[in-house]
Nucleic acid binder design. Sequence first.
RNA 1: GGCGGUAUCGUCUAGGGGUUAGGACGCAGCCCUCUCAAGGCUGAAACACGGGUUCGAUUCCCGUUACCGCUACCA
Length: 443
Amino acid sequence: MTNSEIRVRFAPSPTGYLHVGGARTALFNWLFARKLGGAFLLRIEDTDRARSSQEHVQVILDGLEWLGLDVDEAVVFQGAGIERHRALADQLLADGEAYEEDGAIRFRMPQDEIAWDDAVYGRISFQGGDIKDWVILRSDRTPTYNFTVVADDLEMQISHVMRGDDHISNTPKQIAVYRALGHEPPVFAHVPMIHGPDGRKLSKRHGATAVGEYRTEGILPEAMRNFLALLGWNPGDEQELFPTPQELVDAFSIERIQKKSAIFDVTKLEWLNGQYISRTPPRTLLELVRSDLADDGIDILAIGTDRVLHAIKVQSERARTTLELAHRVAIRYDARLIERDAKADKLIAKNLDGFRSALEAVAERLAGIHASDWLPERLEIELRELAEELGLAAGAVFQPIRVALTGQTVSEGVNVLLEVVGREESLERIRAAQAWTPSAGSA
RNA sequence: GGCGGUAUCGUCUAGGGGUUAGGACGCAGCCCUCUCAAGGCUGAAACACGGGUUCGAUUCCCGUUACCGCUACCA
C-alpha cells in the first residue's frame, strides 16, 4: 500500500503555537499523504530572522501528536539549508535566470503564462508579466521564503504541496523557480483558510485559537480532529462522526475539499465534543478528570476510584467538555466547591419556608434509610412516598434536594445524585442547606 | 490600484438546468420527565445582485457587489 514516490509535507512557521488553521492544514496534509499511501513530513520554516526555539517546535510536535497525526521522518528545518539555498541562488545567477541588484539576487520572471492544475481549485492561471522580478537572496545573503520553499521541497523530494490558499499567489513564482532549476513542479493543492466568528482571518484576538488551548479547555483530540476535518471538507454522505484517524482516511478525498473559507464555530465543536465524551468509556475519561482537578489542587482519587468512575459515567452524558465534567464530578465530592447559582437562589428566595420544611422532612426520611439500602430505586420510592404524604408534587421535594446537594437547579436524577454524593455527605448537605438564606438582591 | 480566488439557511454543508432546495449545529415549540442532558417529533431560517444562453436557471456564461489572498531585501 505504501508509495515511496508520494511525499507530502506540512510546513508551519515556528510561531510558538499551532493555531487551528495550521492544525487543519496539517490534518489535510496527513490525510492526503495517508490516502495516497505516501509519507507525511514536517518542515519548520524557521530562518535566521525568525529563529525557532526548541519549545516552539515542541508545541507543534505536541499538537500533531495530540491530533493523532504521525510524522514519518525527522523534522527538517529551513534554516539548516542556508548554504544550499545560497549555492542555488548563485547557480541561478550564473545561469542568467537571476540578476544582481543592490547586492541582492533578483529572480527574472518569465513573461508568458504560468498555470497549473490545482488539486482543489482546478486550473489557475497567471501571467508572468504581471509579477515583478523578486529577490531570492537578500543583500545579506539570506534567502527569502518563496525561494527556500522550492529549494527545500526539491531537497525533500516533495511530490504534493498542500497549503493554505493564501499561497495561491505565490505559486507562479515558485513554479518559475522549479523550471529555472530544470525541475517539474509538484502537484499543488490549496486549501481554504479558517476565519473567525466575525468572518475575518483567525487571529489571537478571537481567544483560544491555539489547539493547545482547546486541549486545556477540555476538548477531546478525536473531537477536534473530527471537527477540523469537517471544516471545509465533507464525506459526501451524511456521516458526521469519524472517531479514528483511519476512518477519516478511508472517507477522505481531495475532490471534496471546499473552495471557500469556513468560519470556526466553537458551539458546534463543543457539541461534537459532547458526543465524544458521552461515547468515551469512564475509564478513559478518568485520567483526564484526575489531571484537570489535580491542576486545581484536588486529589479526586482520594475518595475512591470506583466512586469517581460512577460520577463520571453519570456526568459524561451531560458534559460538553472534560473540564465541565471534572468540575461536576468534583462538586459531588467536595461541598466547598458548591456555588449557588442564580436559579437556585431564586428558588430559595421564592419560598424559603417551603424549602426548609421540605428539606427537614427529607432529612428525617432519608436518615432512616440504611447505607446498604442507599440505592437509586429505593431512594426514588421513598421520596415519592414522602411527597405524597406531604401533599406535594414530586418536584417540590426533588428540587430542594438538588439545590441542597449541588447549589444548582440542574443535575442528574435526584435519586442518582443522592447515590453519587453518598449517604453521609448527602445528609450533611441537606442539613447545612436548611440554614441557607437567600442572597441579597435575589428576592 | 493591479493580479488571483470565493459566493446555498446565522454557522458547517448536500445538491445541481425542471427538487416541496436535503442534512447537521444553534434557535423556538411539543413529547419524555423530579430539573438537565440525551432521544423523538415539529417549526422558523438560504441559492448576493444584474444581464445573457435556454422552453426553463439557484445550477452554465458575462458583469457588478462583497469578502479573502498576493502585490516586501516577511514567512
